Amino acid sequence: MYIEQGYKGSLGTWNFFVIPVLFMLLMGFNYVSTVMLLEESDQSMEQMMAQMIDVMGRNVFLAVNLMIFVVGLLGIFIWVKFINQQSLTSLTTSRKRIDWKRIFFMFGFWAAFSAGSILLSVYLAPENYELQFDWNRFLPLLIISLVLFPFQTSFEEYLFRGQLLQGLGIATKSRAVAWIVTSVLFGLMHAANPEVEKLGFSVMIFYIGTGLVLGAMTLLDEGLELALGFHAANNITAALMMTASWTAIQTDSIYIDVSEPTAFTLVDMIPIFVGYPILLLILGRIYKWKNWKEKLFGRVQNRAYFTQQNPELDTNINNEL
C-alpha cells in the first residue's frame, strides 16, 4: 500500500502538488527562455552547450547543473518532514524501514547491465566510438557522479514516483491514473533535452517508457527503493562510460559517440517494449510480487479504511523517523 502512505501526512491532498507544480513552472519558464535565446542567437542547443562547456569545463558544467537538484531534494525533504509532517520513510516505502539492500542491489544490477550494453555496442560498432579516457579528467568526474547524481535521480524519483504518485493516487483513487500520468509527465520533463532536437520527438517514447517501468517497480514493490537504485545506476553509468556532443549530459567519459545521430526507430524501441517487461519479470521473481493487476490498476483505499487497518496512524504520525 505505497500510495496510501500519503495519508500519514497532516495536510490535505493539495500538499503533494505544491513542489511538483513549482518545479514544472520553473522547467516551463526555463524551456521558453532557452528557445527564445536560441532564436535570438541563431544557435542550436548543441552549439550553446559547447560554448558554455568551453568556458567552464565539462566537470564544472556538470557539477553546476547537478547542484540545483541538491537544493530541490532538500526542499522536498523539508516540506514533507516539517510542513506536511509525513515521515521520509512513508514517502519512500510501505515497509517499516527503507530497504537499503533493495537500493544497492538494483544499483549494482542495472549498472552492470548498462556497462555491459555500452561495451557490447563499442565491440559491435567500434567505428562509432572513440576512446577518450584521461585519468586526470575522469577522477573528478567519478567523484562528481557518485556524489551529485544520486541527488538528481533521487529528486526526480521523490518528485514523480513519490509526491506526485501518492498525491494523484489519493486524489483520483486510481493506481492506473497515478502511474500513467506521472510517467507521461516524467517523459515531458525531458522534452527540452538536446536529444529530442537531434533524434526527434519520437525519443519521448523512451523517456515515457522509462517512467512507466519505474512507476511499475514502485507500485509492484510497494516502495521507491528499486526505482532509486535503477535511476542512479542508469545516469551514473552513462555519465562515466559514454557521452556525445549532442546529449544533455556532457562528460569526460571513457568513450565518446562520434556517430551521426539518427531518428528514433522501431529497433530502438525494443529495449522499451521487450527489455523493460523482462526486467519487471526478473524482479517479480526475485521479490515474489503478487497481484500485479490490482497493484497497477486497482483502486486506492480511502483514508478511513486505511486508518482502520492502521490504528496507530493518528497517534504515531509525528513520531516516525
Rank of each mutant, 00 (worst) to 15 (best):
K173S: 08
T172V: 05
G57T: 04
T247M: 15
R58V: 01
R137H: 11
F151E: 03
F61A: 13
I53G: 01
V35N: 11
G75A: 11
A115Y: 10
T315W: 12
D134V: 10
W135G: 12
L226M: 07
F264K: 00
S202N: 07
N302Y: 10
M27E: 11
V32I: 15
K290E: 14
R175C: 10
F306Y: 15
Q132A: 00
D42T: 11
M269H: 06
F138L: 03
W179G: 06
E46Q: 13
S259A: 14
A112S: 13
M49K: 12
S10P: 07
V122P: 01
I170G: 11
N193K: 10
M106N: 07
E225V: 02
G6Q: 02
V70L: 07
N291P: 08
V55D: 12
A115N: 05
T243H: 05
E39H: 14
V258A: 05
D42G: 13
T247S: 11
I282W: 00
G229I: 06
G275P: 08
I19A: 00
F104A: 12
F109I: 05
L313G: 06
D99Y: 10
F230M: 15
K101N: 11
W246A: 11
N234I: 00
K96Q: 13
I249S: 01
Y305S: 15
T153L: 07
L226I: 09
F138G: 01
G12H: 08
R58L: 04
F155P: 07
T182P: 01
I98A: 03
I254Q: 01
L37R: 10
E195N: 09
L91N: 04
S145A: 14
G6D: 01
G229Y: 11
R58N: 03
P271L: 02
D54C: 05
L266N: 01
G229T: 12
W246R: 13
T182H: 04
F306W: 15
I68V: 06
F107Y: 08
Y31D: 10
V177M: 15
G9I: 01
V64A: 07
V203T: 06
N235G: 01
L185H: 03
G209C: 01
T89K: 13
E157N: 10
T153Y: 08
D268Q: 00
I78C: 08
V203G: 04
A50Y: 09
A191E: 03
I272P: 11
T218C: 04
Q309E: 10
K8M: 08
R137K: 15
D257Q: 06
F155I: 02
Q86G: 10
I144Q: 02
M52K: 13
T210W: 08
P311K: 11
